[in-house]
Every structure is written in structure tokens, then in C-alpha cells.
Amino acid sequence: MQISVLAVTGELAIDPKEGQQVFGAIKAALEAGESVEVRFHGVKTVISAFLNAAIGQLFGHFSPDVIRAKVDVTGLDARDMVLLKVVVDRAKQFYESEDVRRALASQEDDTDA
């Protein structure tokens, strides 16, 4: 499936709440076993606060192998791809921490309860 970031944010992908919406759509698709193309075509400004929520968060819920196999991100120019790599590197490091894993597990327990 395709997710248009432009349809969620307009030309400015800066709000973490809108990033959360995009994350929710990607997560739902992956849980249904679908592949996802996250399209940034038409978006003029992207900042890390948005990318952390929309893309970085995936690494707390899915393995890098699953993300690599099922998710693609298109439509970002060279400058924003560098920003995305910073976000991805930071997310991988962040979600490998035991402290964060415990916090996430605790959140999921609360949701289940």
C-alpha cells in the first residue's frame, strides 16, 4: 500500500502529532502483513521531530529486517535523506537500550489491561 505524507501534513511535515498518524498507518499495514511505500512527494519541508514520530518509532515495534523488507520511503531529496538516516541511526541505537525496551513493554501492558 502507499501512504501519502502530503495528504496528512500538507507541504510541511513538521508536527509530531501528524508523524504519529503516519506511524499508525504504517504500523497497521505491517501488522496486516502488507508492504508500505511512504511517499513524501509534494512535501517541501521535513524536520526530525516529524521523522522521529513517523519513521524512527517503527524501530521500537519491528525488527530492522522486517522494516527493510516491508517499508520503503520515497520522494525525499538528498538533504532530507541525510536527515532520515540520522533519525534511523538514532532510533536503532535508542530502541536497543534495555531501559527503552522496558518502558515500551510497560506501555503495551497498560494498553492491553
Binding site: 509530531p16 524536520i47 526530525s48 521531530a49 522521529n52 514520530a53 524512527g56 518509532q57 521500537g60 536527515l83 540520522v86 533519525v87 538514532r90 532510533a91 535508542f94 530502541y95 527503552v100 518502558a103 515500551l104 506501555q107
Partner: peptide, 17 residues
């Protein structure tokens, strides 16, 4: 050090960029 105040989501990247 890249500490963040968020519990379940990455942060600290903006200021460092």
C-alpha cells in the same frame, strides 16, 4: 550525549542537526 525526554520515541536529533 543525545539524551531525550521522551519515553517511547526518539528525540534529541533536532538540536544536534
Amino acid at each position: 550525549q543525545g539524551y531525550t525526554s521522551k519515553i517511547a520515541i526518539t528525540g534529541g536529533t533536532g538540536l544536534r542537526q
